[in-house]
Design a protein around this nucleic acid. Structure first.
Lengths: 190, 190, 190, 190
DNA sequence: CTGTAAGCGAGACGGTACGTCCGGTCTTTCG
DNA sequence: CGAAAGACCGGACGTACCGTCTCGCTTACAG
């Protein structure tokens, strides 16, 4: 049970904390997520949490890091439009229903009040995500489906922006039709 | 000075609270915004705040309500593209540098953890804002610049989504070029 | 209903306040006796109370003043011992079960924390009460049952002190036997 | 058994609280004695006080418990009258000028409004005090100075009652003459 | 017979203290 | 030496009353 010993940090405690934080976030929302609560749920001393994580959000970060990348890696079938639709649908699912997405939304919200967190979120997630998003467009350029001088960053914003907007701001449903129209209009208009 | 009597609340106290809340939000961020702090800054008793506002966010709501509508009312010069660019630029300014926009971002962030707040934000601000956003497109339809059967709601999302995305999520700068490209691409592709 | 006029206060309001204060003291104890509560119970504005009574204890004082004198006026049958026993029994009843006595105990208690109140209690009640207590002994002196040079004040203290002690400090019952012994011992030993 | 930081409550905090409560009571009186004030004076968090003491009076109780017994332990010289006079003088001093006595008066006063406190005061102090008071009389019985069947409880009341009465009720001075007369009259009349 | 001034119920006001809760730190004991 | 336990200080929470202050109504004397 006790792993307090001279052989380093307890992996068991670490995983229990991450799991508890994740569960409690989904169960009660971020507002009710307290370090005390996580410690109790994980069967861990508060000090153990403070020893290894600077803040509540750091725990969530660690809990969320790996999951997101897996869910959001784009497909590559050779059909640009279809791949885009598939990828954006996965993104929509991530933002609205996924477990990891819930953590992302919470962190993004906290980021509005905490510039350091916002910066970290960009560095550790959004930048990598942009790379993944661009891959699809770069392949389209390589295939000649998009002009070689197209501003891919701008195009990415035009594709994913409306999804984030609906998911995080207005709460509107993101239908397949919406995504399909979005993809076709963007491919034509870029 | 005192207006405490049976004929209603003190307008002076009300304004002092709204001003204090607004100032403290911008100065210290939402995380450090406390009722106690607002009361002290406003020179008002805590009970006076609790008497009139159910929660901290209600104060912010009231502080932000009127300002936002004024800042975000679209122009009408007859030139659709120019009006859209002007309007979206105003929106970008609102989201990134405006005082009222700071309150909006804070409320949106809280809305991620508090569905009731999110709903209220939609009802009292976003719905009205969508109406304002659509006006420009409706005029374009009337002028024949857009097809009569265009899905204006979707178009609005495609126009404003990328702005919210950059302002609230990635923190990228929103340049005039970005807006210009966005408007032209959307008008062509809608 | 309203007695507001330019010639004098409302007797109705005054009585309602006294009654409410008395009731609430007995019902809830002094600790829970608040001006707000009295005002509400009496159907009177707080300001009306503050206009006429400087403090909570002043209300109680007024509520208690007349009753006490009536309950504690000594008899005069010519039989000193019997009169003393009767009188001390009335005092015991006053201190332990009487309504007015409850107010007296509350005021005495407050007097421990408030010297001004203690002084007022002495001036307005205890001095007069001592006069009443001494009457019995003075009659005994006149009848030759006590020596002419007896220190009556000291004797009063020896008679009533044990009663106050039991009633206010130890809470022991004050039986007729206790009073009888006390009277006989004092008459013999004085 | 609660043990502080895993094994023990902070004795330092405990003593600081008791000292602060005692000081503030004497300086400002019971009326102005607040938990917040005690916490601040003691350099202790409010929570620490609420953790260990159910109420303000419990702090005073603890502050007063040991002191009283020491001040009021009766002498034993073999001379009953003299010992009684010495003991009652100590009691008078306790009630009127002693630090611990000030706490006793405050607690007694609160006990008028709070039966539970009154009961506790009897159990933890007055009962033990009565035992101490009786000792002197029991020794007199053993020496044959008082009849074997004397009602010592009643006699104690007759001796100490007048002192409590003067100290707590009328505020009259308690002179040596008063005590001397009291003792002699009681020894003769018992 | 009509103003006007005092007393009234009502209740908002700036405050103080309440008792509770959580954050983050520190100390102690165990393995 | 890491982990569990949990007491510690600090400080915000929302509540209850405090004593003060207008407000508009009701009266009853004064002009």
């Amino acid at each position: 049970m006790h792993r307090g010993n001279r052989h380093g940090r307890s992996e068991q405690a670490r995983l229990a904390v991450l799991q508890a934080a994740d569960d409690l976030l989904v169960e009660n929302g971020f507002a009710r997520l307290t370090i005390e609560g996580i410690a109790q749920r994980a069967g861990v001393a508060k000090q153990t949490i403070y020893r290894w994580w600077p803040s509540k959000t750091d725990i969530l970060f660690e809990a969320f890091a790996t999951d997101a990348a897996e869910e959001l890696t784009p497909p590559d079938t050779g059909d640009t439009a279809r791949d885009l639709i598939t990828h954006l649908s996965a993104l929509a699912r991530f933002l609205t229903v996924s477990h990891a997405g819930a953590v992302f939304r919470a962190l993004t919200a906290e980021g509005q009040h905490d510039p350091a967190l916002a910066a970290r979120l960009r560095e550790e997630h959004l930048t990598a995500q942009r790379v993944r998003d661009r891959q699809l467009l770069q392949r389209a350029v390589q295939r000649g489906e998009l002009p070689a001088d197209a501003d891919l960053d701008t195009t990415v914003d035009r594709l994913v922006g409306p999804l984030y907007y609906r998911a995080l701001i207005t709460g509107q449903e993101i239908t397949t039709e919406f995504i399909t129209e979005l993809v076709h209009a963007t491919l034509n208009g870029a």
